[in-house]
């Protein structure tokens, strides 16, 4: 294995060049960033529209849902910024460019993730943070050390859960060539599922986000603790603290699946 500092140095060099070329055109970069942020605010507007009609969503007030949405958005955007370019994988596989990844002395997953960097995706992190901060000012949270710590842990664990899920679903590309849509359903759909209180979902969707694709651990379960809310689903209280464990398990599962999938790689052409 290559040690971590070397990997980080190489990563910085790889994406450094990409960032330089994106910042080069300042105006277009700024517009891009603002555009991305605006589009994601529209996304949040959909939630506000719902609350025009109802006062609460499954016992969650607008500020509480905004809090969920904020956490989910920040973690999603952070994951997207770091490993979002895994969506280039189907294209790399179709063209056979994944060959080149395999003849370099670095991990294949790392190389795919570091193959590009889109700085404007920072716009989404900004949007998530703004909504999270606004939600926090509207909520009266009793801040204890445990809650503050939990908020920080949640963002990190949530990003790892998203990452594990994306990696797992991206490997479909090794079996099916046109898999981008399937994988997208779980990346962007995952953000959507993580942004809403799980108790409003139907039974099968609830089971899905709790036991199969553990998106309930991204924001919902830890938020129950941070906001000191009663769990309408009556799940064991321990689950509210389980996000870090689930994150490790999900990331490991994603990594393992990746290893298996790479051995299935068939390359392209002659």
């Amino acid at each position: 294995m290559v040690e971590a500092p070397t990997i980080l140095r190489i990563y910085a060099r790889l994406i450094g060049a990409r960032i330089r070329s994106q910042v080069q055109y300042r105006l277009s970069f700024a517009l891009n960033m603002i555009g991305t942020a605006l589009i994601s605010f529209l996304d949040f507007a959909a939630i506000l529209v719902i609350f025009e009609q109802v006062d609460a969503l499954g016992e969650w007030s607008v500020a509480e849902v905004a809090f969920l949405y904020g956490i989910s958005s920040v973690t999603f955007a952070a994951t997207d910024l770091a490993i979002g370019h895994i969506d280039l994988l189907p294209e790399m596989i179709r063209k056979g460019d994944f060959d080149l990844v395999l003849v370099r002395p670095l991990g294949s997953l790392f190389q795919v993730v570091a193959s590009d960097f889109t700085l404007r995706r920072l716009g989404r992190v900004g949007q998530g943070l703004v909504i999270l901060v606004v939600a926090l000012t509207q909520l009266e949270i009793e801040w204890t050390a445990g809650r503050v710590g939990m908020l920080a842990v949640t963002v990190v664990a949530g990003s790892a859960i998203f990452a594990g899920v994306w990696i797992a679903f991206s490997t479909i590309a090794f079996w099916l060539v046109d898999s981008l849509e399937v994988a997208n359903a779980f990346t962007y759909g995952g953000n959507f599922l993580a942004s809403y209180p799980v108790n409003i979902f139907g039974a099968w969707l609830r089971r899905l986000v709790l036991f199969v694709v553990p998106l309930a651990f991204v924001a919902y379960l830890p938020s129950l603790y941070i906001l000191d809310k009663k769990d309408e689903l009556g799940l064991p209280r321990a689950l509210q603290f389980a996000s870090p464990l689930v994150a490790v398990a999900t990331a490991l599962a994603g990594g393992l699946l990746w290893r298996v999938a790479v051995r299935r790689y068939r390359s392209a052409g002659g």
Binding site: S21, D97, L100
Partner: peptide, 21 residues
């Protein structure tokens, strides 16, 4: 694979290994 990659060189006439930009 990774150990091997350090000890071999590979050139594909039809693919580009250098960074495009």
């Amino acid at each position: 694979r990774i150990d091997l990659a350090r000890r071999i060189g590979v050139v594909f006439g039809q693919r580009i290994q250098l960074w495009w930009d």
